[in-house]
Structure formats: structure tokens, C-alpha cells
């Protein structure tokens, strides 16, 4: 059965936004009343990231359980998932970026992933969604040794968090190093299917010029998580290879420019066929969370409400008919 959650990331456009309890409460209530039953958290560090990691949850809500109560009070069932990027580093333990392509960093990646997974289990969650490697501009080369090192890291993480009841899902994005040199398929082949799943982010796939439905059809057993969002454009000029592409291309729009890469589901300007994605998931009996996402939205409540309408009126009828 598909369960629907919403990603919290869109509510924090700047480092000093979305810090107050009232803001969190209102966001969770918007998600809930728009028809979603779960929320996906994202990684952050420091005191202005109250929802960014287990230590900050404890500092602000007493404990992970305290935050779970807060989520339930907003009429949501669970924190579905947590997005974890090991390359960010954490002030909480003075750890720097931990690169899965660096064998020396594996212990750090595993321990931080476990830190998140333990909290996630307390929050009723099921999937740790991770950024498997750096951006393409940071790692233009991707030889077999690097793929094997990255794969070994995530195999270790999958093994470490499985006993907690948390699945691992590697998330592909349109700036990822995995976009070149057939990296996504090679990493898929190099990882243990029993330990490592994938997250299909439909907007990121589309922006990278990939078909998310084709991926689901090709690898239905590896799909452990879905982030459902629309995209406005394809990066067909390989701008993802540009230095600091996160800043210049994703947020700044690049040379085209693209004012906003990701859109709400079902809008005319979008290039993702969300109905086809859901049909593909249903046909393969996908059983798990689908997180609707609208990162980079200029109007977060509006995006959540429009996506909520689309969920109730277009997508849920597809799942109900199955």
C-alpha cells in the first residue's frame, strides 16, 4: 500500500527561516489537512535547524519521542523518512563532511546514518533517504574503484540500520556525480539488493533527462522510496558540471535561466507524468511511502495544498482502483 507524506524542506529557504515552534506547527498542520499522513525531514546542523538532526530534536522537543508527539498532535501519523547527506558535516559532534567515496570516512557515514535511523525508528519512520555521493562538478571521474567504494559504504550502512527496521534508499539528483559515466546503473549493480534500495525522485530524474517510469519498470525491486515532484525543464546543456552548480544552476537557474526547476504536480508547464509514475508503482505492488516534494517553492503552503488536491483527486483514485 502506498502511504503519502510531504517533504518539510521547502519551508526553509534560508538559514534563518523556519526556526520557531509555531512555524513548525503550522507547516505540519498544512501538510496534514492537505491529505498527507506523514512528513519527511531533512538534514541540518546547528541551533537554527531545530528539525535537522536527532540532537536538535532533543534540544527543542526534549527527545525524538517528544517530537513524535508534536507530529501526532498535528494529526500526522509519522515521520515517514529522513533525508541524510553525509557531506554536510555536523556541528553537533564537530564532524566534517564524510565522503562515501573515501574509505576512511565510512565509519563516520555509518555512525551518522545510524544516529538518524535510531531516531527515525522512534518517530515511526521507515526509510533513510541518503545522498549517495558528491555532485558531478566535485567528482567528474567515476571509475570502478570509486563506485565500489561508494557501494561498500552504503552496503555497510544498510546492514547497520536494517536491525532498526529502517530501509536505506539512495537518492539520485540531477546534479549528482552518478549522472555521468552511467553512474546510477553502475552503483545499482554494485550494491547489495538486500541492503540497499533506491529513492526515485521524479523531478530530479526528469531534470537529468531520465525517465522515472522506465527506472521503476527496470528495477521495481530496488525502489525503496519515491519523492514525487514535477520538473519545469531538462538540464540538456550539461550545466550540472558547472562549479558550484547547487548555487548557480539549481538555485540561480543557470544560463537558460530556469527560474524554478521544480513545480507542483499536474501543472501544465511540468514535464513529469505523475499519474504514470503512480500506475507503475501500483502495477509492481509498491508498498511504502511516497513523499511529495516541492523544494524551491516560493509559496510552500500553496504548493502543499495544490499537491494535496492532486493527490486526492488524481493519484489516490489510481491507487484506490488497484
Amino acid at each position: 500500500m502506498i502511504r503519502w507524506s510531504y517533504a518539510i524542506n521547502q519551508w526553509k529557504p534560508s538559514f534563518d527561516d523556519f526556526t520557531r515552534r509555531r512555524d513548525h506547527e503550522r507547516a505540519l498542520r498544512v501538510i496534514s489537512i492537505s491529505g498527507f499522513t506523514g512528513v519527511e525531514l531533512t538534514t541540518g546542523t546547528g541551533r537554527w535547524e531545530p528539525l535537522g538532526n536527532p540532537d536538535q530534536l532533543a534540544a527543542n522537543f526534549g527527545s525524538a519521542a517528544g517530537f513524535a508527539d508534536f507530529v501526532h498532535d498535528a494529526a500526522l501519523e509519522a515521520v515517514s523518512s529522513w533525508f541524510f547527506d553525509p557531506l554536510l558535516g555536523f556541528r553537533e559532534d564537530l564532524s566534517g563532511p564524510a565522503d562515501p567515496a573515501d574509505p576512511a570516512a565510512h565509519d563516520s557515514v555509518v555512525s551518522h546514518a545510524t544516529w538518524f535511523a535510531e531516531a527515525l525508528a522512534e518517530l515511526g519512520g521507515e526509510v533513510l533517504v541518503v545522498r549517495p555521493t558528491a555532485s558531478a562538478w566535485q567528482r567528474p571521474e567515476l571509475d570502478d574503484a570509486v563506485i565500489d567504494t561508494i557501494a561498500a559504504c552504503w552496503n555497510d550502512v544498510g546492514r547497520a540500520i536494517a536491525p532498526l527496521g529502517i530501509r536505506l534508499a539512495l537518492h539520485f539528483d540531477f546534479l549528482s556525480a552518478l549522472r555521468s559515466h552511467d553512474g546510477l546503473e553502475r552503483l545499482l549493480a554494485a550494491t547489495d539488493p538486500a541492503l540497499v534500495g533506491f529513492s526515485v525522485d521524479t523531478g530530479e530524474f526528469a531534470a537529468a533527462g531520465l525517465d522515472p517510469v522506465a527506472f521503476i519498470e527496470a528495477h521495481p525491486d530496488r525502489v525503496a522510496h519515491v519523492q514525487l515532484k514535477n520538473a519545469a525543464a531538462v538540464d540538456d546543456d550539461d550545466e550540472y558540471l558547472r562549479r558550484n552548480a547547487e548555487h548557480h544552476v539549481k538555485k540561480g537557474g543557470g544560463e537558460k535561466p530556469v527560474p524554478r526547476w521544480f513545480l507542483e504536480l499536474g501543472v501544465a508547464a511540468g514535464i513529469v507524468d505523475a499519474e504514470a509514475v503512480v500506475r507503475a508503482l501500483v502495477s509492481h505492488g509498491y508498498d511504502g511511502w511516497v513523499t511529495v516534494e516541492s523544494d524551491l517553492s516560493p509559496h510552500p503552503p500553496t504548493s502543499a495544498m495544490l499537491n494535496g488536491w492532486y493527490l486526492q483527486h488524481v493519484l489516490q483514485p489510481i491507487t484506490a482502483a488497484s
Binding site: 521547502q10 527561516d17 548557480h248 538555485k251 540561480g252 527560474p259 524554478r260 524551491l296 517553492s297 516560493p298
Partner: peptide, 13 residues
């Protein structure tokens, strides 16, 4: 300042 993808600071572009 506002932008099509949410508030930005002056260092964006």
C-alpha cells in the same frame, strides 16, 4: 528579496 524559487539573498546571482 523574492525570487521565482523563494526568498534569496543578494549573493545568489
Amino acid at each position: 528579496s523574492p525570487s521565482p524559487n523563494g526568498p534569496i539573498d543578494q549573493w545568489q546571482t
